[in-house]
Design a protein around this nucleic acid. Structure first.
Lengths: 365, 365
DNA sequence: TGCATTTATGATAGCGCTACCATCGACTTG
DNA sequence: CAAGTCGATGGTAGCGCTATCATAAATGCA
């Protein structure tokens, strides 16, 4: 059993080796573990020792290696977040608030955008799971089976946001898109509107757009109104351009339409802009409503009726939930699946009239 | 030299232990290293062996641990990206394209948003450096000293995007905001406009907004025109609302203004919407131009004159550059600092008139 | 004062993977 | 046919950190 010779060449060239914890320890005259403890709060180190070590850390410009730390502690410090699209101010706000909320705990948010594609979602999720995230945040209700399997195997806390799924995978932070959309439609029905057209995406399930359409239709049906005037685009997100292109089709198929209910504000802005281009007065000849209370809806002329959602709150509350989960885990406890609701309520603005309207006006155009 | 007893309790409870590579190896009847090689392309494994191993991996639902892999290989698979704000369609496009470009190589993009705050930038950058990123992407020109020090110490390839800094830290993928803004202003000067007002952020350096203003002013100065009509907001990003609120001030201070040049499209849209609200015709009484060719600029009525920038191309080219760097590093080579330029050119649309204008029209309002 | 308890620090052994070198057999080549 | 070459696989020793246990010193309590 002859001893092989020790490694002759170190893996990293010795000349420009990166600083390690042991280098700091040596410089500070303590053991590496004391440096480790000094760098973490809530570790039993004498105040003087910690101050001294931190000074040395700063002087040397030492930056700890979180790959090593994560491997040893089995805590990656990563939160995996799947969003359908980065290019959506709401998700940007949510993710921003989430990362701000968890940053003090040293957690970072890793984002993947699925582009509303199941296969891509699965693949990206697996990529994220390799980093052993401490929580997975999903901005989706529907997921295909292999994705669900992946999450189940991973044994990681899951938080679904921007939704209230019928069968949650774990925790939930969101609101009911169905109810919020229905509430908006109801408000417009109350004002005397009767002929609605719905603008949204093709899918009939598993997207927020589908949920909103279903809410719109529920309100119309309950009021005994026609809920069959629907224009569908391919897949989300629906753009301003698509909204603009849809208006002529709507006017062509249902010339007496009074209100266009859109899956989201950008789409509604497109409709409104196209109406302006065509010389159709909003809201006198045609009313328009969106969903989400985007910036553009507050600035456009007239400003847009919509549903206000507090995107930042969703992110913040998600972050707080994650911190709770983490703390519970540290205590060896587990948290029951939580459902946190955030408000989402209609805001009536200039793009829909507040007075009861005479019927048929638009039909005469 | 008595042997201490071996650890009695394993770190992870044995019951629900996560699958490791050695489990896969055992199940497949090969050594762990063969599993490792099978999972990576370009590793010398017999085709049959690899297929067999991959099947076992799939059957067991094994997901490799990238913390461990990264630590051992000294390749984190992470690209650190600093953006000022997530809530900006351009950066969203750039980051999206970047992550799509590098995904095939197994790289993931870690994003931090600095909110245009130096201290925050430094802190977030250090957080990212702990993950030992393989490249750092900065969407900023100006950085304070301690940030620069951090990057220098980290010894990591750096790519500055959306800019062409005077003194680049490393590689660059972007365009000259100064030149692009000057080109837009020049086109408008060519059309006969003479009285310009500039709308932008407070800072005079180190932001894209400052660079654009300086480009606008350069063109005005060269044409012998007044470049002193400037309205400044606090800090970027400038919103639609801020644009809207600025218009009355502009009209008050310089009633004969012909053109409002804005630091970005959202701001320009705000100005245009406010003009509509005030009954000022765009472009007949007032012309408006933005920067960036956002969605809203193509849909609004009239559509907005702007500078088109290919945000996705910046991301894609950055990704390709990173892959090149990586490959070079694998060969033991190093790449000279590259500068990759993307096009950015003015687009004249309805918010500025294409006909030479009679002067003073607006003054008569 | 003596003993239990707490506090501060250290030594050791992994965390799960891959770099490095070694080995072995098959194949080529003069 | 010996010697070299190459392709496939494996053994070992880390990567840089922290969990765990051990130990020494300080403190509390009767």
């Amino acid at each position: 059993m002859a001893n092989r010779p020790k490694r002759t060449v170190p893996r990293r060239p010795a000349g420009k080796r990166r600083l390690r914890m042991s280098d700091v320890a040596q410089a500070a005259g303590v053991s590496p573990i004391t440096v480790s403890r000094s760098l973490r709060e809530n570790s039993p180190v004498a105040r003087d020792t910690r101050e001294h070590v931190l000074r040395v850390v700063k002087d040397l410009g030492y930056v700890p290696d979180q790959l090593a730390s994560g491997l040893a502690s089995q805590r990656s410090g990563v939160i995996a977040t799947m969003v359908p699209s980065l290019n959506n101010p709401h998700f940007a706000d949510t993710v921003g608030a989430l990362s701000t909320a968890v940053a003090p705990a040293g957690l970072q948010v890793l984002i993947a955008h699925t582009e509303y594609d199941d296969a891509k979602e699965r693949q990206l999720l697996e990529m994220m799971l390799r980093r052993r995230p401490e929580a997975v945040v999903l901005t989706y209700d529907g997921h295909d089976k292999s994705t669900l399997q992946l999450i189940e195997n991973a044994d990681v806390p899951t938080i679904q946001i921007w939704e209230t799924p019928a069968k949650p995978l774990g925790h939930v932070v969101g609101f009911s898109n169905v109810d919020a959309a229905a509430a908006l439609a109801q408000r417009l029905i109350d004002q005397g509107y009767t002929r609605f057209c719905l603008l949204g995406e093709a899918a009939d399930r598993n997207t927020r757009g589908a949920a909103r359409r279903s809410g719109f239709r529920r309100a119309l049906k309950r009021a005994g109104l026609d809920d069959s005037r629907i224009v569908r685009f391919t897949r989300p997100p629906i753009t301003m351009q698509q909204g603009a292109r849809a208006l002529p089709e709507i006017l062509d198929r249902w010339p007496d339409t009074e209100v266009v209910l859109c899956v989201s504000d950008p789409c509604a802005f497109g409709v409104q802009a196209e109406a302006q281009r065509l010389g159709i007065d909003v809201p006198q000849q045609l009313a328009v409503a969106g969903f989400g209370d985007f910036d553009v809806s507050r600035v456009s002329v007239p400003d847009l009726t919509t549903v206000a959602v507090d995107a930042s709150a969703i992110g913040r509350l998600t972050g707080e939930l994650i911190l709770e989960l983490r703390e519970a885990q540290a205590r060896g406890a587990t948290l029951e699946p939580q459902t946190v609701l955030v408000p989402a309520s209609p805001i009536l603005r200039g793009s829909t009239s507040t007075r009861r309207r005479a019927r048929g006006k638009r039909g005469e155009r």
